[in-house]
């Protein structure tokens, strides 16, 4: 019961947050999440290569045309493959990527817990 209340409270606060979340620098957010494919190890936002400059222009253009963040990602994924996105997202390719560390955390917790439970017996 207490847990439920706590959970609801968290949910409310998070929603409250979403209202306040800004969209001002959306193009910055998007370009920071794109790999500059020709510079290796830099985001499009951080790079000044020709490719990155064009991509920045394109993202601005698309945003002005009313595309959403998701649509832009899908568009670029279609052109360049998932490789261009720094945030791999949660898909069939990345289940293990996201879940394995969490699993490790849980296993670690279980091992520590076991140390104490053994002690009682």
């Amino acid at each position: 019961m207490r847990f439920l209340k706590f959970f609801i409270l968290i949910l409310i606060i998070f929603n409250f947050n979403l209202v306040h979340a800004k969209t001002k620098n959306l193009d910055e957010k998007i370009t920071k999440n794109l790999r500059c494919l020709i510079c290796q190890g830099q985001s499009v936002h951080d790079s000044d290569s020709e490719f990155a400059i064009s991509l920045k222009t394109l993202v601005k253009k698309k945003l002005n045309e009313g595309s959403s963040e998701e649509e832009i990602y899908n568009y670029l994924k279609d052109k360049y493959g998932e490789w261009i996105l720094y945030d791999p997202g949660f898909s069939k390719n990345t289940y293990f990527l996201w879940l394995l560390p969490i699993l490790m955390f849980l296993i670690g917790g279980a091992i520590i817990l076991k140390l104490f439970i053994y002690k009682k017996n």
Partner: peptide, 20 residues
């Protein structure tokens, strides 16, 4: 190391960057 595994097993290439 995940991108290496994925590429070998399914020949798809992904980036794992700061957001992850």
């Amino acid at each position: 190391t995940y991108p290496i595994f994925l590429e070998v097993l399914s020949s798809e290439k992904i980036s794992v960057g700061p957001p992850f």
